[in-house]
Every structure is written in structure tokens, then in C-alpha cells.
């Protein structure tokens, strides 16, 4: 089942490698975080495709959902940290 998805998964792996350049070389921390977010989004798609390759999409789709939530929470937490660096100041930076 789904042999043609193997080719798409291989191409997607090459696409995922490209943003690593920005993660390693980004001039600021924000560029690195943006690269990590982009890698996370594309990995989501790769997990879905691997589920179709193995023919067990019912299991992999739950992993995908959990991965999406973790990616989003991490992004928001780091952004929140830069907007309000001190936790004791009741919201004022």
C-alpha cells in the first residue's frame, strides 16, 4: 500500500535538510528559531507519509497530532519569553 509515497518521502527529506543552513548560520537567535519551526512543520508531513508507507496511518496520525501541539507550544513559549523576560514582573517587560 502506498509505494509511490516512498518517493515523495525521499524528496521531502531533502527539503527538510535545506533549513538546517539557517539554523546553523542564522545571524540572530530568531532566525535559528524560525528554521527550527520550519523543520518541525515539514517533519509533520513526513510522519504522515511514513504512516501511509507502512499502511498504519491510524497509529501515525495520533503521533502527528501530538507533534503539531508540541511544536506550537514550544514556539509560543519561547516568543512569550522574549516579550516578557521576567516572570515576576506581572506582565510588564
Amino acid at each position: 500500500m502506498g509505494r509511490e509515497f516512498v518517493y515523495v518521502a525521499v524528496i521531502l527529506t531533502i527539503i527538510i535538510i535545506i533549513p538546517f543552513y539557517r539554523v546553523v548560520k542564522g545571524p540572530t537567535l530568531f532566525d535559528r528559531l524560525l528554521g527550527v519551526g520550519a523543520i518541525g512543520t515539514k517533519t509533520l508531513v513526513l510522519i504522515c507519509l511514513v504512516g501511509f508507507v507502512y499502511g498504519r496511518i491510524d497509529m501515525f496520525i495520533d503521533i502527528t497530532l501530538a507533534y503539531a501541539v508540541l511544536n506550537f507550544i514550544g514556539n509560543i513559549a519561547i516568543a512569550k519569553y522574549f516579550i516578557h523576560p521576567r516572570a515576576d514582573s506581572e506582565g510588564s517587560p
Binding site: 509533520l44 497530532l65 509560543i76 516568543a79 512569550k80
Partner: peptide, 28 residues
């Protein structure tokens, strides 16, 4: 249906995360 659920969730959250990061960079 679960795939469409993931789709809706990511469509809602991915731009929000990018916007939060851009806002943090601007405040920094």
C-alpha cells in the same frame, strides 16, 4: 477526518507561531 483535523489545527497555529516570533523580535 483525523487528517483534516490536523490540517485545521496547523493552519490555525502555524501563522500564529510565526507572528509571535516576529513580535518577539520586534520587541527585542
Amino acid at each position: 477526518v483525523k487528517l483534516l483535523l490536523v490540517l485545521v489545527f496547523v493552519v490555525l497555529t502555524n501563522p500564529v507561531g510565526a507572528h509571535a516570533l516576529a513580535l518577539a523580535a520586534q520587541k527585542f
